[in-house]
Design a protein around this nucleic acid. Structure first.
Length: 572
DNA sequence: CCGGCGACTTAGCAGGCAACTG
DNA sequence: CAGTTGCCTGCTAAGTCGCCGG
């Protein structure tokens, strides 16, 4: 693999190289912070069953409070949520409770719910001093547990707090919503650190499940979660060397794809004609992944997760073929739920050969059948590996996102614009990528209102501008008559006032446009995960835009490597 | 080739908090 | 200086992909 070596001196991103697979030589940390223990409700907070007060055992009460805290949420009304919750709740009950509490609808959590609302309210009303005290306690925790030493560096840990118990929600229509996410104990925890480090001590009276010294992985702590049975990890912050290097590598792989993408495109176009159905399916799927930035689409276990798909797992029911639509030929209409149950809806004109292939793949199939029945992500990725070392399906998303940003920035940046307008151009370029990657968000709850506020500000500013212009005009007239220094000065200051207001108005209008266009688009995901930060750094340098306008503090920390490296002439 | 597991990246959302405004 | 707003951070779910054993 070709690694570009940056010339600057002692840059930490390329300090040391490790032998294949070795991630560190020394690792020391303090272990995780556990969720605070359950505090039983005060005596006066009651739970009612079938209209009668009932005192719950501590364990049953704790789980009941999880439900009570969610009472205002729509999902406590969902059948699956209620069913799963009730089943798991009953497991925590004493046999006596179990025989009494047989119907969730007869459970009255409203008093408990009110109590928690009052608590939240009280927390808001806390004095400055009390709030300060909590803040200091959090800082102390961060200082003690939030950092580790990996090789020669003190590094920030991403998530050093263990997830507290609660009710699982999941995204979209998740079959396990409402299940009890159990409390994680030290006995569930595997500690990973180096042999010669100070090994973290478990809480008094407890033991770790295991302490291991595996320097082929990057995690510090792991445990198995009880909803899906998957492993959760405590790992380092994105600002760390280990994450930064990996991130850099990712973009370097995408840049290698840039060099051979034309060849790959020609190849899959050829493959559309293959006599082997598997090859044709692979080629059409790759075309979608490349053109539409779809995810690979691994198979999922039915009934274990929400029904979502990616490219390889698309079903016949997810696309519609239109030989002609709105004056365009060979249009494919996509409608499916992707990652996080975010809807992907798109009407795309495709090449005739793709269209004909799709018709072929759909022949004699039911709506719920796989579109690409001869294909999966493993087959696809093996093929991609043959085309380029390190190439997988997701690299196309990175590549297309980054190249789109670079192109869009070139196209949209107007050298004569002021900083605010240039930033609007940047956001528009970023937005083009977010749309490509289908990064959506729920419109902010206060969107309409805040838009109206902004509009009235703009209107007010316009009037102010008109006034200022009138004043300037009369000052000018005045100066013509008087011809003295004082009135000349007045004209100058009025001119400046007009200019200032014009700028303010322009800024507001830019802001309004930006916000409107951003209503349902999330920019941060692409910014954080798909856009080679060196493109943005170079753009800032080229146009004299302060990097703070593009990246906030966290983002600057994550992309420190790029801010270090990239010059204004950087090309992705 | 298949299924399951492990490690890691990518994802949207809620709530808190700092900055702005009136 | 209080109230509001909008951004940021933390949280944790949900993907991708490689590997292993059968």
């Amino acid at each position: 693999e070709v690694v570009l070596i940056h010339i600057a001196v002692s840059c930490r991103w390329e300090e040391e190289r490790y032998p294949e697979g070795i991630k560190w030589k020394f690792l020391e940390h303090k272990g995780p912070v556990f969720a605070p223990p359950y505090e039983p409700l005060p005596e006066n907070v009651k739970f009612y069953y079938d209209g009668k007060v009932m005192k719950l055992s501590t364990k049953a009460e704790e789980v009941a409070t999880f439900f009570a805290k969610m009472l205002d949420h729509e999902y406590t009304t969902k059948e699956i949520f209620r069913k799963n919750f009730f089943k798991d709740w009953r497991k925590e009950m004493t046999s006596e409770e179990k025989s009494t509490i047989t119907n969730l609808s007869k459970c009255d959590f409203t008093h408990m719910s009110q109590y928690f609302k009052a608590q939240t309210e009280a927390r808001k009303q806390m004095s400055k001093e009390e709030k300060q005290k909590i803040k200091e306690e959090n800082e102390r925790l961060l200082k003690e547990y939030g950092y580790c030493v990996m090789d020669n560096h003190k590094e920030r840990i991403a998530n050093f707090k263990i997830e507290p118990p609660g009710l699982f929600r999941g995204r979209g229509n998740h079959p396990k919503m409402g299940m009890l996410k159990r409390r994680i104990m030290p006995e569930d925890i595997i500690i990973n650190c180096s042999k010669d480090s100070k090994i973290p001590a478990p809480p008094p009276g407890h033991k770790w499940k295991e302490v291991r010294h595996d320097n082929k992985v990057t995690w510090l702590v792991s445990w198995t979660e009880n909803i899906q049975g998957s492993i959760k990890y405590i790992m380092l912050n994105p600002s760390s060397r280990i994450k930064g290097e990996k991130d850099w590598q990712k973009y370097e792989t995408a840049r290698r794809l840039k060099k051979c993408v034309d060849k790959i495109r020609n190849q899959y176009r050829e493959d559309w004609k293959s006599k082997e159905m598997k090859v044709r399916q692979r080629a059409v799927a790759l075309y979608f992944i490349d053109k539409l930035a779809l995810r690979a689409g691994n198979e999922k276990e039915e009934g274990e997760t929400a029904d979502t798909v990616g490219c390889c797992s698309l079903r016949v029911e997810h696309i519609k073929l239109h030989p002609e639509l709105d004056g365009q030929e060979y249009v494919v209409e996509f409608d499916f739920l992707g990652k996080d149950s975010i809807r992907y809806y798109n009407k795309v004109p495709v090449e005739k050969r793709v269209f004909k292939n799709l018709q072929l793949f759909m022949e004699n199939k039911q709506p719920e059948d796989d579109l690409f029945d001869r294909l999966n992500t493993s087959i696809l990725n093996k093929h991609l590996q043959d085309l380029m070392e390190g190439l997988t399906a997701k690299v196309f998303r990175t590549y297309n996102a980054s190249i789109t940003l670079q192109q869009q920035l070139k196209e949209l940046t107007n050298p004569d614009d002021n900083v605010a307008a240039k930033i609007l151009s940047y956001n528009r370029a970023n937005r083009a990528v977010a749309i490509l990657c289908n990064h959506q968000r729920a419109p902010p709850k206060t969107f309409e209102k805040s838009m109206m506020n902004l509009q009235s500000k703009i209107d007010a500013k316009k009037e102010q501008l008109a006034d200022a212009r009138r004043e300037l005009k009369s000052a000018k007239a005045d100066a013509k008559v008087r011809r003295d220094e004082k009135s000349k000065k007045t004209v100058e200051s009025k001119k400046k006032a007009v200019q200032r207001i014009e700028e303010q108005l322009m800024k507001l209008e830019v802001q309004a446009t930006d916000r409107e266009e951003n209503k349902q688009i999330a920019l941060s995901t692409s910014k954080l995960n798909y856009l080679d930060p060196r493109i943005s750094v170079a753009w800032c340098k080229k146009w004299g835009i302060p990097i703070e306008k593009i990246y906030n503090k966290t983002q600057r920390e994550k992309f420190a490597w790029a801010i270090d490296m990239a010059e204004e002439d950087y090309e992705f």
